[in-house]
Amino acid sequence: MIRFSEVSKFYGALPALRGVSGEVGAGEVTVVCGPSGSGKSTLIRTVNRLEPINSGQILIGGRDIHERGWSVNALRSGVGFVFQSFGLFQHLNALDNVTLALRHVRGLPRKEAEALGLAQLERLGLAERARQMPSALSGGQQQRVAIARALVMKPAVLLLDEPTSALDPEMVGEVLRAIEALAADGLTMMCVTHEMGFAQRVADRIWFMERGELKADATTEQFFKGEAGARAREFLKQI
């Protein structure tokens, strides 16, 4: 579904990604973990071209993301992205946040977009919050609105960049449960997270990154048995 081939990225002279190669299968959940500054977030941000790469190739469904005739906005509207700090539009209520791209990227009429938006909010347990402003919602609710906003576009892939890091501990569970439900529905996901318990329950594969390199690409079972290399074992111990 997503294939990285020798992907490298530099910030000036500083390497952020060094020749990352790997594949995320359709319907699979891949959790990307590793120490701070290891390039996890950078890696998933390259998939929808939020971060340009310096060399290598990224394919989604066999198509190069830099292919001519595939505009960056068309690519992005088919790849969901959930940020650590939600990024909700503060002047729009939950439903308008969810329907903005349906209306103004997909061009759906308001009624149709709202029906889809409401259904998506309902799926994430937020039906009664649809008309509330982001400032009236808890962090966990805001993040679920952000997930609904990404899902309503029916993305082929959902990328999550530390979706629970900005949340108070008591709200982490509700967001993780929502993501687990999506995984059960067979959505292809790449998730950067430090929640290793969640990774063990949900992930099909675990990618361990260090200093911009993909150090281990293992099944969840192998990873937690400590069969993904010495560095990955050390990392697991520290967490």
Binding site: N48, L50, V72, N73, A74, L75, R76, S77, G78, V79, F81, F83, S85, F86, G87, L88, F89, Q90, H91, L100, A101, H104, V105, A146, R149, A150, M153
Partner: peptide
């Protein structure tokens, strides 16, 4: 907040829509 602009980018919202629907309403308010 930069996070909102980035979220708009990630949704594939083009410049004109981003400006008219997200940036200017909040900035002018």
């Amino acid at each position: 907040p930069k996070g909102q602009i980035e979220a708009a980018h990630a949704l594939g919202v083009r410049y004109g829509v981003r400006t008219l629907r997200i940036v200017l309403p909040q900035a002018l308010f």
